[in-house]
Design a protein around this nucleic acid. Structure first.
Lengths: 139, 139
DNA sequence: TCCTACAATAGACATTGTCTAAGTCAAGTG
DNA sequence: CACTTGACTTAGACAATGTCTATTGTAGGA
């Protein structure tokens, strides 16, 4: 069922009810929950799970490269389980909806050497901002 | 001296010592201070300036489009006075250094209609991440 | 079954940001 | 220049998000 869970198991993770629940909550496409949203959903399945455990578990998943941390709004970080398919994000400035998107081209190639200031660049994040269709109609 | 200050004056801002100091602290290129860093520097020039005023003033500058808010790390927001020349950011993952950069090409053109989900896109932010030269040598 | 190291818990603490009520002052008016 | 007014500033409480610690619990191997 959960690809995420399978991959984590294969990395020698000690499997606990808490970790299983967090992984299950994160499963799916276009999932971008905050840590507290993950906690709220986890609690419905495992009432005694603590906030600290959710934060720890999410942090470990990020370290293992199985989940990506996204900061789209300067508020709470969001967690994106779609870590194995490179993608960017499209964000609605009104309701905060987030979609995964796949731009053509390589943004890294667009940065000339003279603009790299000697940095070794490892990663490029692109955030498209706009208004989603449902917010546009309820203008 | 401060272009920023001149533009704000021209918009009917009531000019106060506090606002002047905040604008002066922000003046320059490759400036990306957090609100508390702005406050710390402002205090050296105007000891009685409050944190709330710094937050308010920065917020107003952002609303007026004279300063850009940048969230590069999911921690404190940073404030970039270089609002009138479109640019992107290059961030060192170790020390947090930030440089303004100017990629070639238009990232918006790279997003096909089928990947826009009906959104009206108004803005694209690109963040290049890597290691800066001085962090690379002190590996 | 028992042990042990790793994991989970509650809650204090830290950081960043927002709000409120009261006092202060910039700048227009006479 | 003095007056007035509404915008501005202030201190500190509050809120949201995230981290840490000391203690208790438990997964999984021996």
């Amino acid at each position: 069922m959960s690809d995420l869970l399978e991959r984590l198991r294969g990395r020698g993770w000690r499997m606990t009810a808490q970790r299983r629940v967090v992984a299950e909550v994160l499963d799916g496409d276009h999932v971008h929950l905050t840590a507290d949203e993950v906690h709220a959903r986890a609690v419905t399945r495992l009432p005694e799970i603590s906030r600290a455990t959710v934060y720890n578990t999410l942090g470990e998943m990020v370290t293992l490269g199985e989940v990506i941390e996204v900061a789209t709004d300067g508020r709470a970080k969001r967690y994106d389980p779609n870590a194995h398919r490179p993608h960017q994000h499209l964000v609605c400035g009104r309701c905060g909806a987030i979609r995964d998107v796949h731009p053509a081209g390589d943004p890294l190639a667009d940065l000339p050497d003279t603009e790299r200031f000697g940095f070794t660049i490892s990663n490029v994040e692109v955030t498209y901002r706009g208004i989603c269709p449902s917010c546009a109609t309820t203008a």
